[in-house]
């Protein structure tokens, strides 16, 4: 999947066509990873080059849905970076609760939902799950369905269980799912207060205000221009003194709105909005 070298001009043709035809804008995605994703699609569908892909995208709307699912990266884990979840549980959430007993969380780019369930488990174990309204969004409705269903491959549960143990969960992760023909089926009761909705961070606008936004390892697929734009959206969607969490190897310091946030925890990349 890495063999094909694709030219930037060809990527431009792809993003232009998709924008025109389907109103999705990949023009400001990070170039190198987008290029690899396109190369992957070419290989997956045994296409000999970008012209074939362009023709297919032009005439086949159903294929575009598949393309969308392949182009977005959906590798995620439950309790990825256990120390991050410890920080949430011991500092961030208690801080939010000092001011509001009831609060709201947005998982922006929730993919197949692992972090949503991780969050629900944390809140459940803190005994406050019913005090929290969670909204989980993604650009791809196919992956959103997967998040809703939450039937994960049992082989993926090994790393999830390990992470949960490192995090210091109260029980065993098995308490929250049952095995059904090779799948771990998550307890739907955990997401009773979760609204899953399709939303495009690139073209979407603010739809509510939140006390905490999680957007971990999503903006790494955007270029700086798009990161600036998405940070504006988050800034608008956060109450003053509310929190934003990004991936541990991301940073806001290169963003235009960086001065409206302070770092609360630099190791875990948790920020607080301090200016409107």
């Amino acid at each position: 999947m890495l063999q094909q070298e694709i030219e930037i001009s060809e990527l431009r043709l792809i993003t232009d066509l998709i924008k025109q035809k389907y109103d999705y804008d990949f023009g400001n995605y990070a170039m190198s990873s987008f290029k690899r994703r396109v190369a992957r699609v070419l290989e997956l569908y045994k296409m000999e080059g970008v012209p074939t892909l362009l023709r297919r995208l032009d005439i086949d709307a159903k294929f575009f849905k598949e393309f969308l699912a392949e182009i977005t990266v959906n590798v995620t884990e439950m309790f990825r970076d256990p120390t991050f979840w410890v920080e949430l549980k011991t500092h961030i959430i208690p801080h939010i609760r000092q001011n509001n007993e009831n609060f709201s969380i947005w998982h922006a780019g929730c993919s197949s939902g692992e972090e949503v369930y991780s969050m629900a488990i944390v809140l459940e174990e803190m005994g406050i799950l019913d005090n929290v309204k969670i909204v989980a969004t993604d650009i791809d409705h196919v992956i959103l369905d997967k998040a809703r269903e939450a039937r994960y491959h049992i082989k993926n549960m090994e790393v999830n269980k390990k992470n949960y143990t490192t995090f210091g969960g109260l029980y065993n992760l098995e308490n929250y799912y049952k095995e059904e023909s090779g799948k771990a089926v998550m307890d739907q009761n955990l997401v009773r207060n979760v609204e899953f909705r399709e939303q495009n961070l690139v073209t979407g606008s603010a739809f509510s205000k939140f006390d905490l936004i999680l957007c971990r390892n999503v903006m790494i697929y955007f270029n700086q221009t798009l990161q600036n734009q998405v940070l504006r959206l988050f800034h608008e969607s956060l109450h003053k003194y509310a929190y934003l969490a990004i991936g541990s190897k991301e940073s806001l310091i290169w963003c235009e709105l960086a001065n409206k946030f302070i770092v609360v925890n630099n190791e875990e990349k948790i920020y607080k909005k301090i200016r409107d």
């Binding site: 990070a30 190198s32 990873s33 994703r37 990266v73 590798v75 390892n217 790494i220 697929y221 190897k249």
Partner: peptide
């Protein structure tokens, strides 16, 4: 990435 910056990915 072009422009001599790093880019990371969870692919």
């Amino acid at each position: 990435e072009l422009g001599n910056t790093f880019t990371i990915s969870t692919e």
